[in-house]
Every structure is written in structure tokens, then in C-alpha cells.
Design a protein around this nucleic acid. Structure first.
Length: 905
DNA sequence: GGTAGGACCTC
DNA sequence: AAGAGGTCCTACCG
């Protein structure tokens, strides 16, 4: 190889195994197959990743390095190297070979070297590029590559999945680790690398390691001065010096491998387009892969081959006006897909698609003819596919159209199948289920831009936005087909959808339409009062510090507290020191009562409390409609456990804990023509579900005994008679009970109860001793979830938790807590959803004027028409306590009053 | 204008 | 560092 082959060139070096593995876990294996039982998720993810990086980085050369099966020289040094890893998942098998086929077709050289890892190949080539004054870009999730970064070598680390990359240059490494890249292996040797089964020095994390290396120059320096490092960490270091030396030996990259291939073989542009398309066909990759295939892979000038006659995919016919809509109607029966957008330049845009046609209608510009054709289409379609039916229905209604045809909500279906996705809009569904990536949405312009914009620019923007919306609507049709197949494979989704979620969706739409009445005089009164308190607190606090300070800014507060007033530091957070209420109260109570710091903190806390309340007041004020009601939207696909969420405004977090906050509930009142609000809530539903699921005899007895639950449990835990349970015992047991359902740790419990960790552990052990069934259930339920990959509620609602098998401890433990909580929280959600269906339908059947308005997780709020109180009470209580039969009774409490505050019970 | 982090409200 | 959410505010970035 000549010494200047890579001069001025840009070589892309990809760790094939690391990236394939990452892609495998980023995409669902069961969702990507070649149709013959071979999973292709890793192949697909890897290929998309490579397309993205090649397109955005425009390298001149590309090499992909792979590990070989069997060991390397490192295993001979340390036989536990990379030990303890789970077996490669079944579905991953064969995918490396397929990736290599793709690379072959694209003319990309892939390399393996016996006895060495992919990392070493990359290190060698990166070093070569740098020595020849070229540039190297490394793509790997392996942190050992950090040591290779320098002025000529940049590392791209996948941040999430395989599409989003973090760019690590020397400055970024410095920023993140406080060390030069060359010192990173020193740090890793001290800290350890769990992925490689290289244990570090216990008690030494990145912060400590970096501090030592900075002080003593490098790892050798640290080890030379090991004797003088004080404290536990120093002791721990001295005890583990051998391990540290071994780690450093293992994590050093080899940069002088003999590679048999000349660098000229690595140039980009040697691919065979026909071969590549054939491989994609074999893999059953879709059109988007073909579309996004960078031309850079192929010899210059070789454009895409002309499609053979008869194989050309016809472009969809447009849907742009009355004529197209009438054509649609003439072709009845027809199915539709809709997606909507508010575009600052185009107004209300409706994306509309059917087989072979797609388009966008600017609703405000439709003529009479088109408008009536659209209305007819929305009524006479056989089925309309939408992501979020309630939102689209409301949106259309605001534009003067009614969606009356039968609908299918793909967001809701996808949610039941796989809850917990970030979003279920059309674009996300296409991406998550099909792997389709739509063109980016055009940016929203500033008013200034809009003002000086030319008509041409506006038209161009509108064209882009419209094409995008037509695409997202059209994508819903294959999404629906995909969901059909998924439901065929996972039939448990069907009853949950058909008997619970779909009927509930109609109920939630009704709740939104009804809204709840706001008592205007009370709201105004509270606004005046709370505003006054905020102003007072701001004034008093300001007078103490004497300088201009925005109390709502944690950053400015930190300056005042810890610099101006020089108060003791609180708990550390990312941006400095915490100023949350808990920290501030501790801090205040540590100061002399007469001190200015004490007074300042008191006023600050008062400011926080009162400005929170004014926030609610103004939020409600802004959300109230012309008739004096607010219409929250209940989101059905927001909470992965199956709970509902409430937005715009959120009526599920109206204050109740403090007396002042609770007054806000007096704002929600029975509306004109109604007599009262009735609230009904489940008593301790989560603990009842715990009793049911665990079949713990003690807990079941607690609920059947009629005794106060926490008193009963405390009497068992502390071995005293129920009447001898004091307040402290009761509150401690209560904390454990709820903590259990949240995946409690001794640390968390200790902090919550402000007791020592030892005491917390003893408390939990005592609890488990008396309620062994609970312990056994919790253990078994996590084990089972780890086995099956998901948790399950009483109605069979699943939540998939791949992190239960993560080898990252934090992720794994987090997933374990989620696994403990989800069946409990989710079953409670199932039950109240059943109750809502029962209450709504029984009230309608009874022909009552009363109506359900809100759900707050374990509570329903109903507006009672005159004379219907007793009937409503009976329907609500029966509907709720009869919603589902557990092995313990469901108890329902009821309160009635003019306002939500008065209805407290 | 969009996003992240901090804080804080609910069940 | 105990589960599930939403909203507001500031600060920051392009």
C-alpha cells in the first residue's frame, strides 16, 4: 500500500457486529422477516444506518469489520473475557451472513482477522488514515473505540437505536469524560466494562477515576501513587491493582494488524445496483429502502436502471378536488385513510388516501361542489382508517365536517399491541410498524419569515407539506394490513380492543364533548387571592436578598442561595444543586429561625406554592369555553399501563392535598340544569388487586375483615393488637404496602420515611415475613415477565419489557420495577374502564339526564340531573363495584355536592 | 420555534 | 434512588 493512498480521503469504519446487534434490539424481530421465517431486523437496521451515515458523511472509502466466532488473543489472557453474556438470540442467527451479502452487492469490503476483534481492524485502519493525513469516521457502540479519537478520527456513537448518532471528537470526549481520548482506556480500566466482563475497582466510578488520572497524569501515575490515595476508594484500588492492570491490557486497541487488502479496494462506488436490488428483494425490503439507497455506492453516472415495461409501479392518481372525490364515490364501495394538519401557510389540510389515489385538500379553499363531495365521502366510505379517531373527528367538526362513516383507529390498535411507544401518529406508526421513513415535515416559519415570503416560496412550502400529508395518510393503509397480520398472530389483542378499548373510545369522545362547568365567580375570587399571595411572597423574598431575582428560575435561585447568601449546598443535580421543595425545607430547618436565609426560604416556598395555584387558575380560565365549561381530552394511548391521561387541560391533577390547593376543586360545579356533582371512588383498589393476584391469605383476610387496611397490616407486621397500632406504625406499613407495588428499594423506603436504610430493610423483611404470599407473587411475576418478555393485567393487557434481560443494571432494575407495578396499575385501569362502560350504558338505558364527566384513575365524576340522585348513585356504585370480580370485594365511596370540593367524602 | 431540565400537581 | 402521567417555566439552540 502506498503511503499516500488515504491522504485527503475520508474513510468510514463500521463495527459490523456491534451495529448489527444494536439494530437487532432496536427493531422488533417478529416485525421484520423475509417471509420465509428468517428475521431481517438486524439486516434492515444495519442497512438503514449505513445509508444514513453514507448519505450524511459522504465518505470516499468504507470498510465494515466483523468479529469471527471463537476466541481471540484476549481470551487467552483472561478466560472470563466477555463471559456471562446471554446466548445470542435465535432470531439473530444468520443475519450477519445476510448483512455481508448486502455489503457484497454494494461493493463494500468487509474484513475479519483471525484471533482479533473487529475493533482491532478498525483501530488499525483509523491509525493508518491518520498517519496518511486522511480522515476516519468510526461507527460503533463499543466504548473501547473512544481511545482512537483524535484530530483526524471521529467516533459516531449510536445514541438510541441505530439512526441517531452522537459525534465524538476530542472536544466531545474531553467534555464527557474530563479526559483526553488517549486516557479513556485508563479510566475504563479503573471503572471496568461490564459488557466485556471486566470488573473495575468497586466504589470507583467515572468521576473518581477521572479525578485520579487528572491528578497523576495517567494510569501508571495513579498506580504508582496508589499508597497515598486516601479513603475507601484508595483502599479498594490497592486491593484491585491486578485487575486494573489486566483491564488496561485487555482494552488497549491493536493498531498494527497486517491487513491483506489494499486501501484502494475500499473506495465507495463499486456496487452493483441490480445485485443490490435483488438482495433487497430476497430480504423483502420495501420501496423506501430502494428510494433511500445512496447513489454513492455505485459507479458514477450509472443511474437507476429503466424499469422494465409492465413492472413500473403506477404513481397514485391525485385527489385534489370535487372531480376526484366524485370519482371515488363512483367507485364505491371504497376504504379511506385520513391524516390532518394545521399548516400556517395552507390552513386546514386533510390528507386523504385510498388504493391507487392520494392527495390533500385545503379545506378552507374548497368550493361548494368539492365541499359537498367531501361531506359525502366522509359519510359513505365503507371504512375510514385514522390514527386517533377522536382527534380527527373534533378537527373535522371544527372545519364543518362530520366523520360519520365506520372508522378504524390504528393508533388504538397499535397501542393495545405494543403500549409505550412515544407516539402513535400516522408517521410514527409507519416508522415503528413498517420501517417507512417519510420526508421530514417542513419547518414552521416565523411570522417575520411569513411576512416577507414570496408567493413562490409559499407555494413551494405548501407543495412539500401537502405531499408529506398525502404520504402519511397513504401509509396508514399498509399499517392497517400490518396490524391485521399482527392481530392474527397475537389474538389476545382482539377481545381487549373489541370489548373494552373501542367501545370506551366512544365514551371518551362523549366525555370530551360534555365538559365540566366552571364556577366563574369562584375562579375569579381565587385568582385575586392567589395573585395577591404570589405578589406578597415575591416582594418579601426580594426585600431580603436586595437584588433582582426571578424566583421561578432554578438557575438564578442557585446563584442567590449558594453564592449571595452562601447557604450550605443541597443535593447535587445535573445543573448544580437542587432547589426542590424537599431540599429547601431541609435547608431552612437547618438555619437559625431569625436568619435572613430562613426567612428567604420560607417566602420562596410560599411563592412556589402560590404560583403553582395561580398556574391552575389561569390554565382553567384559558380553557373555559363560551358556555362556561372546560373540555379535557382523555388520551387513551398515553400511559403504557393502560391508564388514561387527561390533557388540555389536565383534570387528573387538580390539587387536593393542601387546604388552599383543594379550594380549586370548588371551581368545578354542577352546570345549569343539573343538581349536583357525584363523585365515586374505589377504596384501595391497587392493594385489593395485590391481594387478588398474590392470593396472600393475610391480605385477603385484611380486606374481608372490614378493619382499616393499614391498621390491620401494621398489627401483623408489628405483632400488636389492631387497637395498639399507633400512627407511626400505620404510616410505615402503608408506605411499604404502596412501595411494594412500585418496586420498592430499601433506599427509597428509607428516604420516604426518613429512617435509616437498616431500619427500612428490617421493616420490609418484617412485612414479607407476615405476608409471604405477596413476596412470592412479586418474585414470580418478575421471573415470569423475564421469561415471556411481557407483563399482563387481569384482562390480558400486555406490556413488553425487553429491558428485563438487559445487561445494563440500571435499565434492568428499572424494568423490574415496571414489571412489578404494571400488572397492578394496569389491572386497576382495566377495572375502572369496565366500570365506565357499564355506568355510561346503564345511565343511557335508564334514560337519565345525568351524565358521567370525568375519570381520575380510581374515581368517576358524574353530573346529576334534578331528581335522579338515588338512581344515579345506584347505577354508579353497582357499575363500579360490579365491574370485575376479584377474590376480595371492591369497595366504592360516594360523595355528593354542588362542587367537586363539596362532593369530597 | 422546538426542546431539555427542573419543579410540582395527581392517583 | 418507588410506578403512571401533564403542565408550566426558564434556558438554550439554531
Amino acid at each position: 500500500m502506498s503511503s499516500s493512498e488515504l491522504t485527503g480521503q475520508r474513510i468510514l469504519l463500521i463495527d459490523g457486529h456491534a451495529m448489527a446487534f444494536r439494530a437487532f434490539f432496536a427493531l422488533p424481530a417478529d416485525r421484520f422477516t423475509d417471509g420465509r421465517g428468517q428475521s431481517t431486523n438486524a439486516v434492515y437496521g444495519f442497512t438503514r444506518m449505513m445509508f444514513n451515515v453514507v448519505a450524511s458523511e459522504q465518505p470516499t472509502h468504507v470498510v465494515v469489520a466483523f468479529d469471527l466466532p471463537g476466541g481471540t488473543f484476549r481470551d487467552r489472557i483472561y478466560e472470563q473475557y466477555k463471559g456471562g453474556r446471554d446466548a445470542t438470540p435465535e432470531a439473530f442467527h444468520g443475519q450477519i451472513g445476510l448483512i455481508q451479502q448486502v455489503l457484497d452487492a454494494l461493493g463494500i469490503v468487509w474484513l475479519t482477522v483471525p484471533d482479533y476483534e473487529a475493533d482491532d481492524i478498525i483501530a488499525t485502519l483509523a491509525a493508518r488514515a491518520a498517519a496518511q493525513e486522511g480522515e476516519a469516521l468510526i461507527v460503533t457502540s463499543d466504548r473501547d473505540a473512544i481511545q482512537l479519537v483524535d484530530e483526524r478520527v471521529t467516533l459516531l456513537q449510536p445514541v438510541k437505536g441505530v439512526t441517531e448518532m452522537r459525534r465524538m471528537d476530542p472536544a466531545a470526549v474531553m467534555e464527557k469524560y474530563q479526559l483526553a481520548p488517549a486516557r479513556y482506556p485508563d479510566l475504563a480500566a479503573l471503572v471496568g466494562e461490564s459488557a466485556d466482563n471486566l470488573p473495575g475497582v468497586p466504589g470507583v466510578g467515572p468521576k473518581t477515576a477521572a479525578k485520579w488520572i487528572q491528578k497523576y497524569g495517567d494510569l501508571e501515575g495513579v498506580l504508582e501513587h496508589a499508597e497515598e490515595i486516601a479513603g475507601k476508594a484508595g483502599q479498594s484500588l490497592r486491593e484491585n491493582i491486578d485487575g486494573v492492570r489486566r483491564n488496561r491490557l485487555m482494552n488497549a486497541a491493536v493498531t498494527d494488524l497486517e491487513l491483506p487488502v489494499d486501501a484502494s479496494a475500499f473506495t465507495l462506488g463499486r456496487g452493483d445496483r441490480t445485485a443490490a436490488l435483488a438482495v433487497f428483494d430476497e430480504l423483502a425490503f420495501g420501496d423506501t429502502t430502494r428510494r433511500d439507497l445512496p447513489d454513492l455506492f455505485f459507479p458514477e453516472g450509472a443511474a437507476a436502471p429503466e424499469p422494465l415495461a409492465g413492472q413500473e409501479v403506477p404513481a397514485d392518481l391525485p385527489i385534489a378536488g370535487a372531480e376526484d372525490l366524485r370519482a371515488l364515490l363512483a367507485a364505491a364501495p371504497f376504504e379511506l385513510a385520513l391524516d390532518v394538519a394545521d399548516d400556517v401557510r395552507g390552513g386546514a389540510l386533510l390528507g386523504i388516501a385510498t388504493t391507487g389515489r392520494r392527495g390533500v385538500l385545503a379545506l378552507e379553499q374548497l368550493d361548494q361542489d368539492a365541499s359537498s363531495a367531501l361531506a359525502e365521502v366522509l359519510d359513505s366510505a365503507e371504512l375510514v382508517h385514522v390514527a386517533d379517531v377522536p382527534a380527527v373527528r373534533v378537527w373535522l367538526r371544527a372545519q364543518g365536517y362530520e366523520l360519520t362513516a365506520p372508522v378504524r383507529d390504528l393508533a388504538l390498535e397499535a397501542f393495545v399491541l405494543r403500549p409505550g411507544a412515544r407516539s402513535y401518529d400516522a408517521e410514527s406508526l409507519a416508522h415503528d410498524l413498517l420501517g417507512t421513513v417519510l420526508d421530514p415535515r417542513p419547518r414552521r416559519p416565523t411570522p417575520a419569515t411569513l411576512k416577507k415570503e414570496t408567493a413562490e416560496a409559499r407555494a413551494e412550502h405548501l407543495a412539500v407539506a401537502s405531499a408529506r400529508l398525502a404520504d402519511s395518510a397513504a401509509a396508514l393503509l399498509p399499517v392497517a394490513a400490518h396490524l391485521d397480520a399482527a392481530q392474527e398472530e397475537e389474538p389476545w389483542t382482539r377481545p381487549l380492543l373489541e370489548q373494552l378499548e373501542v367501545p370506551l373510545q366512544r365514551v371518551l369522545e362523549t366525555l370530551h364533548e360534555r365538559g365540566i362547568a366552571i364556577d366563574r365567580p369562584t375562579l375569579d375570587q381565587l385568582k385575586d387571592e392567589f395573585d395577591g399571595f404570589v405578589a406578597q411572597a415575591r416582594r418579601e423574598a426580594g426585600a431580603i436578598v436586595g437584588e433582582e431575582v426571578n424566583l421561578a428560575s432554578p438557575k438564578q435561585l442557585q446563584a442567590v442561595l449558594f453564592e449571595t447568601l452562601a447557604l450550605p449546598k443541597t443535593r447535587k443535580i445535573a445543573s448544580g444543586y437542587s432547589t426542590d421543595a424537599e431540599s429547601l425545607i431541609d435547608l431552612r430547618d437547618s438555619l437559625p429561625p431569625e436568619s435572613s436565609g430562613h426567612a428567604f426560604l420560607s417566602w420562596l416556598l410560599r411563592f412556589r406554592e402560590m404560583s403553582k395555584l395561580t398556574g391552575y387558575v389561569s390554565g382553567l380560565d384559558a380553557a373555559t369555553d363560551g358556555t362556561g365549561r372546560v373540555h379535557t381530552t382523555f388520551q387513551q394511548t398515553a400511559a403504557a399501563t393502560g391508564r388514561l391521561a387527561s390533557t388540555e387541560p389536565n383534570l387528573q391533577n387538580i390539587p387536593v392535598r393542601t387546604a388552599e390547593g383543594r379550594r380549586l376543586r370548588g371551581v368545578f360545579a354542577a352546570g345549569d340544569g343539573y343538581e349536583a356533582l357525584l363523585t365515586a371512588d374505589y377504596s384501595q383498589i391497587e392493594m385489593r388487586i395485590m391481594a387478588h393476584l398474590s392470593e396472600d391469605a393475610g391480605l385477603i383476610e385484611a380486606f374481608r375483615s372490614g378493619e382499616d387496611l393499614h391498621r390491620f397490616v401494621a398489627s401483623r407486621v408489628f405483632s400488636v393488637a389492631p387497637e395498639d397500632v399507633d400512627a407511626a406504625m400505620r404510616s410505615k406499613t402503608k408506605a411499604v404496602s404502596y412501595g411494594l407495588a412500585y418496586g420498592l428499594s430499601a433506599f427509597g423506603l428509607a428516604r420516604q420515611l426518613r429512617i435509616s436504610q437498616a431500619e427500612a430493610t428490617a421493616l420490609r423483611d418484617g412485612y414479607f415475613e407476615r405476608f409471604g404470599g405477596v413476596r412470592d407473587y412479586l418474585r414470580a411475576s418478575v421471573d415470569r415477565a423475564r421469561e415471556t418478555g411481557y407483563t399482563e393485567t387481569i384482562l390480558g393487557r400486555r406490556r413488553y419489557l425487553p429491558d428485563l434481560r438487559s445487561d445494563n443494571r440500571q435499565r434492568r432494575e428499572n424494568a423490574e420495577r415496571v414489571a412489578l407495578n404494571s400488572p397492578i396499575q394496569g389491572s386497576a385501569a382495566d377495572i375502572i374502564k369496565l366500570a365506565m362502560l357499564a355506568v355510561e350504558s346503564r345511565m343511557r338505558e335508564a334514560g337519565l339526564g345525568s351524565r358521567m364527566l370525568l375519570q381520575v384513575h380510581d374515581e368517576l365524576v358524574v353530573e346529576v340531573a334534578p331528581g335522579e340522585l338515588e338512581q344515579v348513585r345506584e347505577i354508579v356504585v353497582d357499575g363500579m363495584d360490579g365491574a370485575y370480580e376479584l377474590s376480595v370485594p371492591l369497595e366504592v365511596g360516594v360523595g355528593i355536592g354542588r362542587t367537586w370540593l363539596d362532593a369530597a367524602h
